[in-house]
Amino acid sequence: MKKSLLGAGFILLAVYILFRDTLLLPDFGISLWTLLFVLGFGYGAVQNALRRNYTSAYVCGVIALIILERHYGWLNVGTGTLVLAAVLAGIGLGMIFKPLLLQNRSFGFQFNNHREDILGDDFVGYKGNDTIFGNTTRYINDEDLTKVTGNLVFSGSSIYFANATILGDKAFYSGDAVFSNVKLYVPKDWNVEFAGDKVFSSIKTYPSPNPSGKTLVITGDYVFSNLEVFYI
Score class of each variant (00 low, 15 high):
Asn53Ser: 09
Ala177Arg: 09
Leu39Thr: 07
Asn163His: 13
Ile66Asp: 09
Asp117Asn: 11
Asn135Leu: 08
Gly120Met: 04
Asn210Val: 14
Ile66Met: 13
Gln110Lys: 06
Leu102Gly: 05
Val38Phe: 15
Phe179Ser: 11
Tyr160Ile: 06
Leu88His: 04
Phe107Ile: 05
Thr55Ala: 13
Ser174Asp: 14
Lys204Tyr: 14
Asn210Leu: 05
Asn141Ala: 09
Gly175Ser: 03
Pro99Ala: 03
Val83Lys: 09
Val15Arg: 00
Ser212Leu: 10
Leu167Glu: 05
Leu65Cys: 12
Asn181Ile: 11
Gly128Met: 05
Gly7Asp: 15
Lys147Ser: 04
Tyr126Glu: 09
Asn191Pro: 06
Gly7Leu: 13
Leu102Tyr: 03
Asn163Cys: 08
Leu119Thr: 07
Ala164Cys: 07
Asp117Gln: 08
Asn181Thr: 11
Pro207Ser: 12
Trp74Leu: 15
Leu216Tyr: 09
Lys188Trp: 06
Phe154Tyr: 14
Ile140Gly: 04
Ile91Tyr: 12
Ala45Val: 01
Gly40Trp: 00
Gly29Pro: 09
Ala89Phe: 14
Ile232Ser: 15
Thr146Arg: 06
Gly73Thr: 04
Ile166Asp: 02
Tyr222Asn: 08
Tyr222Cys: 10
Gly40Pro: 02
Thr22Asp: 10
Pro99Met: 09
Tyr139Arg: 13
Val153Leu: 10
Leu102Ile: 03
Ser157Tyr: 09
Ser56Cys: 13
Phe179Pro: 07
Thr215Tyr: 07
His114Val: 02
Leu102Trp: 06
Phe28Asn: 05
Phe200Trp: 07
Lys2Gly: 04
Asn226Thr: 09
Gly44Trp: 04
Ile232Thr: 14
Asn226Glu: 15
Asp189Asn: 15
